[in-house]
């Protein structure tokens, strides 16, 4: 063996541990995934295609992509700025900012949704003003984009902060001594150092944005062709006894996740098995 084992557990212990891990993985991850795809194709390929090309499903897919297209760039900008500020500087309220970034992870999505109803609902804080200006947020597309953005807020920042923390600001400081200015340093020094970590964060953010159910369900209003995202559409189909169609859409969503994971693995491969490491 090329490597010496770093642990000294006996063989039976190792076998038991491996078996337990494989068992749990199969039960909780592989089996449900397989079930989704089997159910989706149970009534044949035609049913699968028909379920996805149905106009209601198409509009749900479009809305899901649209919400992700708003949430992901916003959170990318936010994530990079927040990670930059938190790791390159020491200032008052820094740990408070760090805690705030984690907030969307900590609160239940349902509460996130309800908070938006409380703020922007017809009887919410800003409801009367929005009503007067004929702006609709809740039970309309902006609310869905907003809820999605909120829930996926921390992904990019959380990915970058540890990475930038370990990198320190030596290179930036060197750049300053050579006369570089803010943006130049960001584009030529910082960004190249974090790009794989950033990509990884963006991918995770995107996967979650497309899959979000709870917060979006609260602010959606469930209007067909209008405010139904793909996850909500799956629930409706299931409730209407269109099981195969529901699983067809679920399979599409799972597929999107799998593609994301595949790209993620590729990214890891390129970074030499470091989770978004500094090596190019």
């Amino acid at each position: 063996m090329a490597y010496r084992s770093s642990t000294n557990e006996s063989l039976p212990v190792r076998i038991v541990l491996i078996v337990v891990a494989v068992l749990i993985l199969s039960l909780f991850l592989l089996l449900p995934l397989a079930a989704v795809f089997i159910e989706a194709f149970r009534n044949g390929y035609d049913v699968f295609i028909a379920a996805l090309t149905d106009p209601v499903a198409m509009s749900a897919i479009k809305l899901t992509l649209f919400a992700a297209a708003i949430a992901v760039p916003l959170n990318t900008i936010f994530g990079v700025s927040a990670a930059w500020i938190v790791t390159k500087f020491r200032f008052k309220g820094r740990s408070f900012l760090l805690a705030m970034i984690d907030l969307p992870f900590a609160v239940s999505p349902v509460i996130a949704g309800l908070v938006f109803v409380l703020l922007f609902g017809a009887r919410g804080w800003f409801g009367p003003w929005l009503g007067e200006h004929n702006l609709k947020i809740i039970f309309a597309v902006p609310g869905i984009a907003l809820a999605t953005t909120f829930v996926t807020f921390p992904f990019v920042a959380r990915e970058l902060i540890p990475l930038m923390e370990t990198q320190g600001s030596d290179q930036e400081e060197a750049a300053v001594t050579l006369g570089a200015r803010g943006w130049t340093i960001f584009w030529r020094v910082t960004l190249p150092n974090i790009k794989w970590g950033l990509l990884y964060g963006v991918l995770l953010c995107n996967a979650r944005a497309m899959g979000e159910f709870g917060a979006v369900s609260v602010v959606s209003g469930h209007i067909r062709n209008k405010t139904n995202t793909l996850p909500l559409h799956i629930e409706i189909l299931f409730n209407e006894y269109h099981s195969s169609a529901a699983f067809a859409c679920a399979a599409l969503l799972a597929l999107l996740a799998l593609v994301t994971m595949a790209i993620k693995s590729l990214v890891e491969h390129f970074t030499g098995h470091q989770a978004g490491g500094a090596a190019k």
Binding site: I70, I137, V141, K226
Partner: peptide, 29 residues
């Protein structure tokens, strides 16, 4: 350097609130 990063954070915050809010009829067709 410090100022520009504050600026981008501020920009991101503004964009976060403003962009979704100004698109009330984005998918309505």
């Amino acid at each position: 350097m410090k100022r520009s990063s504050f600026l981008s954070l501020a920009l991101a915050t503004v964009a976060l609130v403003a962009i979704p809010a100004c698109k009330p009829k984005a998918v309505a067709a």
